[in-house]
Write a protein that binds this DNA or RNA. Structure first.
Lengths: 217, 217
DNA sequence: CCCTCCGCGATTTGATCATATTATGGCGCC
DNA sequence: GGCGCCATAATATGATCAAATCGCGGAGGG
């Protein structure tokens, strides 16, 4: 009955494995992802691997490389412009919707995640920072109870994953500042618009770092 | 070399088949989609069908119904609100980007599609209207040369498909008006902002029809 | 004489299928 | 009305076929 929670199917496991690797920068842009490589790596048969790859391709986390071959997509300035446009439109909206439903327990949980995030920054733990930052945003967004915008946002973050790795490898964690405190204060005040603005500013800072790094206007 | 164009793989064929059925309202919301049903219908084995279903599920065109069962998603007022928000944000942007790249040949092609669309309306051909309307919008959007916003828009239209069928079954084609002429004139004038506004107004009219029909504010 | 380019074949990789296995949902029985 | 059996459908595997890539060898030109 709860097997879907206790025993996730093989294709789900493979999916999450590759997904997390992309999301947290373990795979570099342009890197080829082969079926048989994953078969050997995950110890499952081809069918679940194929399903995971199809799913990731549909989400934009992987890209067809012409002749039935897939790889981690490369970032271009044009794509980056579209990504920032979409994130700037959608994520503040999700934050606003979330703010209208957040309970005190939710806000405390977000506070806890942000504490862990700051601890990771102090330790210089780039991957820990990335994980906690992801957790913070998606814990918040999940409160919006969205069936449309939330999955879209997940695909947008998947496209960002490979970038963050490159950036954080150059800069380290000392330059990582965020607007999470402002978002949490807005949530406590019950001010949805202010929360949306805080998130907008938060992600805009991330965009600026990427732009600066690549020399994109 | 061109086998990917001449001989699309089986999973691609199955994918397009189900996709078009959803997009043009041949499947009703809540209808179950089974692997074995598609195996029998398409005359292929289970593996390609599984891949097509995974892909469609990732795109939001199908929905997990809990215990490893998928169905056509049902529309709710909350989902509709999110869909209209996303389309209102993205599609005018795509139209604007497209307007900056459209050639005279492109505009003529759009003119031709719109003529076919109007002919379908005059004939009371609901499905023909839906196909040509889809063609018009996505011919335009494809000009934007977008790798991010265009796939997202395709998923949004997939969520709309089942709705249009219900609506058009009630109203017929006589109430179908559009702003395609305005968009084409804006393209000829090279006015990207005006083209974006025309598209915004065009899709807003569609939203209004759905809202009125379901009594959604 | 050496360097380059073209073509061919071996090997790797992807696509599809048939089949075994497992879990779920329905139905009858107690 | 609850519980266990059975039919059905989904999951996963390994085998088989097809296609593309990579490497090597030879021919031609500089």
């Amino acid at each position: 009955m709860l097997s879907s929670l206790n025993n996730p199917p093989a294709h789900e496991i493979v999916y999450r494995q590759i997904r997390d690797k992309i999301l947290f920068g373990d795979l570099t842009p342009g890197q080829a992802v082969t079926i048989q490589g994953l078969v050997a790596e995950c110890g499952v048969s081809m069918t679940p691997v194929r399903e995971a790859i199809r799913r990731l391709t549909a989400e934009g986390a992987l890209e067809f490389q012409g002749n039935r071959r897939v790889c981690v997509p490369r970032m271009t300035e044009a794509r980056f412009a579209e990504l920032t446009f979409a994130r700037d439109m959608i994520e503040p909206k999700l934050a606003e919707m979330a703010a209208e439903k957040a309970t005190v327990q939710d806000i405390d949980a977000l506070r806890g995640i942000d504490d862990a995030l700051n601890a990771a920054i102090d330790l210089g733990d780039v991957k820990g920072y990335m994980r906690e930052n992801h957790r913070f945003h998606f814990y918040l967004y999940a409160l919006a109870d969205s069936n449309i915008l939330l999955p879209i946002t997940e695909t947008l973050w998947l496209r960002f994953g490979p970038l963050y790795r490159i950036i954080s490898g150059k800069y380290g964690t000392e330059s990582l500042i965020d607007r999470h405190d402002e978002a949490i204060h807005a949530l406590r005040a019950g001010n949805a618009a202010l929360c949306a603005e805080a998130i907008r500013a938060d992600i805009a800072q991330g965009f600026a770092i990427v732009r600066e790094n690549f020399g994109w206007t």
